[in-house]
Design a protein around this nucleic acid. Sequence first.
RNA 1: GUGGGCGUAGCUCAGCUGGUGGCAGCACCGGGUUGUGGCCCCGGAGGUCGUGGGUUCGACUCCCAUCGCUCACCCCA
Length: 425
Amino acid sequence: MSIKALKGFKDILPEEAAVWQRIEATARDIFHRFGFAEIKVPILEKTELFARSIGEATDIVEKEMYSFTDRNGESVTMRPEGTASVLRAFIEHGLHVRQPVNRLYTIGPMFRHERPQKGRLRQFHQLSVEALGSEHPRLDAEVMAMAALLLTELGLTASLEINSLGCPACRPAFKESLVAYAKARVGEICDDCVRRSDTNPLRVLDCKNEQCRIAFREAPSILDHLCADCRAHFAAVEEGLGALAIPYRVNPFMVRGLDYYSRTTFELLSGELGAQSAVGAGGRYDGLVAQLGGPALPGIGFAMGMERLVLLMQQAGEGQAQLASTVDVYVAALGEAAGKAGFRLLHELRRKGVRAAMDHEGRSLKSQMKQAGRLQARYVFLLGEEELKRGELVVKEMATGEQTTVALPGNTGAWCETVAGKIGL
RNA sequence: GUGGGCGUAGCUCAGCUGGUGGCAGCACCGGGUUGUGGCCCCGGAGGUCGUGGGUUCGACUCCCAUCGCUCACCCCA
């Protein structure tokens, strides 16, 4: 039995990698338009970083992290999400003293030891975006608008849902009234929700169980419990989205899985991801930087799941492998002497920026032509013993089948000048 | 951690109530064209039927176990 990839770890084959490249290129372009700069951070961090940021009591920290003891006896963890690492780097290098507001993004793999299913892997990839240093609600709207624009430019549609989770001033009271509401209905709600009302009360709000949904339909709403500041902030976020004409829906039942969120939270949802629905999600985390030992700076960010984007693009027909040509010129040589000359020609072409390919196996011309067709070469440079003798080269344009004979000067560099000039490369 | 579905060629899959694994499609290689691709025609190569046991004269087929994949719960991007 040959060795296979680990459960939940996937190879991205060349054909699919093309889709990934398109997503990354589009994302970078848009992020740069919005003034975000890339930051590259390690994928291995001290375990404590995640425990402190994501929250000790979350599923991620409790049972999903790839943690191990390093050779020096220290507990380290393969990052389960990007924000903690980016904030650590932000604090460690004092980026806030350079400019008042920092806009950062990072792209890369994350690791969570879960049971894989559609749209969920153990190693997955995120586009992770953070804006630090401003609590202006317009920033919230701007960040959401950027996320939405990315989807649009990838040819995808998703619906934006927003909510506010309040702040340390108003959330505790809400939590209490919600717990009280749940406790009074232990008989009607699922076992999970009974458990949740102790461990993570807000989560009862987005339980998928039909009974629970009914039971919590009349539950206290966070939006009615917001303090004056949070209420004003949320209203201004809505106003900002309105100003940019970004469609959205307020969903008071939306909750986030990570502890650090405050005030604005949002999700970009799609119905085409199996049991998963979020392509992207994020929110504000105003206390987090300070909590990690940095300055008391507010922040907001989001993450997009790249595998989920790929899934959506494939379903939208955007994931088709482009039939673009992978080579400009295929050098077909016949015989040892022509092979040697063709090999020099091949490298000359490449040095001039031409995508060129050649076969070294001494195959028949027919088979070389076939290969050229498969690579969708625009031109074949045919070099046989006869051409070599006469100092010529046959240039065939594959699309039309048209062939012209080109005279070769004495050295390969000049050949390419002549040939490339002739065919307009 | 819990449950359902599925494991036959590189890929997609036929294979009936057990009786020798398929001229199957795509892909690959060669030929038809002594030096010309795509389309067409002909030929070729490619398999521990996931693995291990059991039942049987005989198992791809039935039973058990195991591994893997997958979907869902949980959770989340």
